[in-house]
Amino acid sequence: MSVSNMLENWSKFRHMHPVDDKPHEEYKWAMSIDLDACSGCNACSVACYAENNLPVVGKQKFDAGQQMHWMRIERYWDDDGREFPDQGAQFLPMLCQQCEAAPCETVCPVGATNHTADGLNSQVYNRCIGSRYCSANCPFKVRYFNWYDYPTTDNVWPAEMTQQLNPDVTVRGKGVMEKCTFCVQRLERAKNNARTEGRLVHDGEVQTACQQACPTGAITFGNLVEPESKIARQWAHQQVELAARDKQAKDEQEGGSDLRGYRIFEELRAYPSVMYLERVRESAI
């Protein structure tokens, strides 16, 4: 409470990153998205709306760029000026990358966005004053701001629609920043259940809403600390390291390696917790 106390314990106030002297202990939630399996169908995005009480902003506000999809499916075309995209489109589900060295966390004036002990980039709605500095500093632009008071003045959930709202997730009022939480409400429930039974959360015991919906199972989610979990094995196989000091194994090889795993903007050293697996296209046709 006192200033002297604060100064004495300074290092403990904001020190949740996995530095060498303090690695993740029980959990480090991470995700991988296989772009070869992703069909771009948008099921994950709608599931996210359902799970996380995301407001539907309507045409006008969508036009103004104020849409609130925590999970957005991006569609890219080849840039090589071919007449037809004869190798199809590229789809990329983009969500908060839950960076280990998150650019958003350091800049928040009130500390409303923090790193949790299990490696999530948390957003404390009650603490947020809406300076939007976090969004300004996010390389992926996956933070969404409540430009309007969606539940009240905007009446996004009229009449019975409110009954659909997930009571485990806050309905955000105007002026706060929000973003993908890796479905933290599901994680907490699973952790509590595990704790009650005196164990850790099993691999596959908890799914994020997007992962659960994904028809092609392109999304894998789990605990990176547990070496036998699917996610840890995936990361290990692709030789992607969470806090690689410089480059990933894939980037170091001349001409690229035969691995598929990569993270977006590796060079910015934000150390994202989401690994993407390259889309593959048949060379024989």
């Binding site: 409470m1 604060m6 106030f13 904001r14 004053i129 300076s131 500095y133 409540n146 002026g175 920043m177």
Partner: peptide
Amino acid sequence: HLGRLWQFYYAVPYPNERWVWPNFQSPLL
């Protein structure tokens, strides 16, 4: 420019029972 300007005082480092301080790393602070 604050989204919740009625909470602007969160950016002020006042001692409080919850030990919540502003983020001294932030250039905005």
